[in-house]
Design a protein around this nucleic acid. Structure first.
Lengths: 159, 159
DNA sequence: TACTAATTAGTTGTGTGCAACTTAATCGCG
DNA sequence: CGCGATTAAGTTGCACACAACTAATTAGTA
């Protein structure tokens, strides 16, 4: 199967939300398995950059917007400071970023890329291309999946 | 938006696979965020059962097929023994299952539900209903998402 | 201005996940 | 049969994730 139409067409006869306890019926499991499978696919690519997958996500945000607070980074990635703080410490130890207290608000910590951190962006450019190819979805499927996942996330997060 | 048609319709003008480094363009991030959001939604429900989310998945498999090897459990959930072994040890400590070496193959360990483990199934029956409601997807969206995720997983896993 | 409430980042403890490795048992081939 | 290769489960080490908590700072209000 390769198109959205075919996917809809092959939805078939079994119940979409039968609410059974069968593992294969659970959308949640499909989501959990897909997330780990994609992360696993990233792993060897990111290893060449010296990054883990969550570290890569942090770098994506920083390449997009340098000098961001831990708070705003957490809002962007939906991660707690208890997850980010040690992760950022590791990236700092790796020389990719610096952490400095904001002078105007000593509670806040500004995350800034180092020269090495900024340079890494070039080497990361091929990563989305490679992953996109590995995903093997048509543009329609790609967009549709993204929108369904965003809808799902929005509903599930304080629905 | 609520129907598949509307979702396709609102796919809009931005590139589906533009291969940029923008976080919001990454399907991978939508997947990662959705998976954690759904797991978070499960957490309070599963806490009442004394289970974590991966533990719940193990129990789903066992309720479906009691007496399964660690190997087959790993195949069903796509988890390594290094993840399952400690997890199963915790479930055993919680009195939900037993682990015993297979007499015919001493390498293999059979996982069997205890009486308490089997009883827990009743209390878990409402969980998929509650989660399904929280997800707020139409039956078509639900099925479509599941199929897209399965396709994605299949492609990404050794594509 | 005092002083409490809220905010920000970080720490601690627990439970995954996975790579790399170990141990024990079985398989399979000569 | 002998013995190296394979398989199954588990251990170790590292890096997330998150709940619960702490420390420091700022905001807001009587």
């Amino acid at each position: 199967m390769s198109t959205v139409g075919e996917l809809v067409g092959t939805a078939g006869a079994e119940p979409a939300q039968g609410h059974t306890l069968l593992l294969d019926d659970q959308l949640c499991f499909a989501l959990y398995a897909a997330s780990r499978a994609v992360t696993a696919r990233y792993r060897p690519l990111l290893e060449e950059l010296g990054l883990t997958y969550p570290q890569y996500l942090v770098m994506l945000v920083l390449w997009e917007q340098d000098s961001i607070s831990v708070r705003d980074l957490g809002a962007a990635l939906q991660l707690e400071s208890s997850t980010l703080s040690p992760l950022l410490k590791r990236l700092e130890a790796g020389g990719l970023l610096r952490r400095e207290r904001r002078p105007d608000d000593e509670r806040s910590v500004a995350i800034r890329l180092t020269e090495a951190g900024a340079r890494l962006e070039e080497r990361a450019r091929t990563v989305p291309v490679d992953i996109g190819a590995a995903m093997g979805l048509t543009p329609e499927q790609h967009t549709l999946t993204q929108q369904l996942l965003r809808l799902l996330t929005a509903n599930v997060s304080q629905g």
